[in-house]
Amino acid sequence: MLSVIRESIKNAPGGSISYAAFMEMALYHPEHGYYQMNKAKIGRNGDFYTSSTTSAVYGAVWADVFYSMFSELGISCVLCEIGAGDGSFAKSVLDEWKRKGYPPLHYVVVESSPYHAEQIGMKLEGFCWSRFSSLEEFQSVCPSFNGIVFGNELLDALPVHVVRQTPAVLKEVRVALNETGELMEVAVHADDELRKWVETYQGDLEPGQTMEVPLAMASWLSKLYEWIERGFVVFVDYGYIREEWRQPEVREGSLRGYYRHQLILNPLSRPGEMDLTSHVHWDCVRKAGENFGCPTTCFQSQQEFLLEKGILNHLVANVSRDPFSPEHKKNRAIRSLIMDNSISRYFQILIQKKDGCC
């Protein structure tokens, strides 16, 4: 992967590439990108955990939520999960859907990783589902969409540009090579598009403040909302609203790497070997939805959301003294999703609705 990035930098005007271009290669290169590698990325043997791999209860709660959404709009039950990972969430939703006897559900998986595609195929055997390697591929056979689009930890992995405010001007932080061929950062004057985005969503940054600019996300969201005719868009992720981006802990930006469950502060280390992620600009997501008649109907912490949607109803009476019994494991998993120090405290749920009236 490093050789591919070096070659790209050498051929780039000025000898540098944007962080967005770097992330696109490091994460999504068809041969050497992190998400294309034939290895575990999620869970104990991977680099990070997700809520959906903590317990099947997570997907079970969402199954009831999805059914309510379909009923509210009176549309066919078609659910499209973008970035489905290893299929754990899809299986838990479909299992609960079947257990509850809900109307037939067609589950569409958008997942580019061949490794994950194989795992999904094994998990969803016997269910009604289909897979596409990209949203564009799905859109080519489905020109307009009526249903629910779901993305869990999707937006945080989209490529971002990086800017830094100096006392005089806004600079873009780019990726270049030093004399020994190692990756390093350089700063150039930010172009009009980057400056306009910062002015729109953040106003003036403080001198020395670094921030990610999600131009790729904004473009991708526009195409998504335009494609949807009627339905809901659901994003589960971690991010900030405008005021929170002023907090001291994100003064130097939020772009990080994760490798074997360790936080890597230098995003340029281990390209292609580790996950790269940055916090979501929720104001940008909300505004993009509004522009296409898909306003936000829910925005809250995952912890609050799960409690409101009845996750405690899934607790089971302990019928065994064995702490490793299925009942004990399930109850521990539920607690791990709602406790104050749980993963859910740091995640937000954003739900947007497009009813076709706009």
Rank of each mutant, 00 (worst) to 15 (best):
K196H: 04
P30L: 10
L177D: 11
A187R: 08
V236P: 08
G257C: 07
S342C: 09
V65Y: 07
N146V: 09
V188T: 04
N11E: 14
V93E: 03
P143D: 06
M1I: 04
N331W: 05
N266Y: 08
K10L: 14
E111D: 15
S219A: 15
E137G: 10
T166H: 13
V173G: 04
E290F: 09
S18H: 00
M37V: 03
Y115H: 15
A12D: 07
Q300F: 05
P13F: 03
A317L: 09
Y115V: 15
F145A: 07
P267D: 03
R246K: 14
T200C: 06
Q302N: 11
S88L: 10
A288Y: 00
F232D: 02
D322A: 11
W220E: 13
D322Y: 11
E72S: 07
S18N: 02
S278H: 08
E137L: 12
D191R: 02
V149Y: 03
L27N: 01
L158N: 04
L307R: 05
E96Y: 10
I311G: 00
F89Y: 09
Y201C: 06
W220G: 11
S320K: 12
R332K: 14
K287Y: 12
R99Q: 12
A187L: 09
N178A: 13
L265T: 11
R251H: 13
D95K: 06
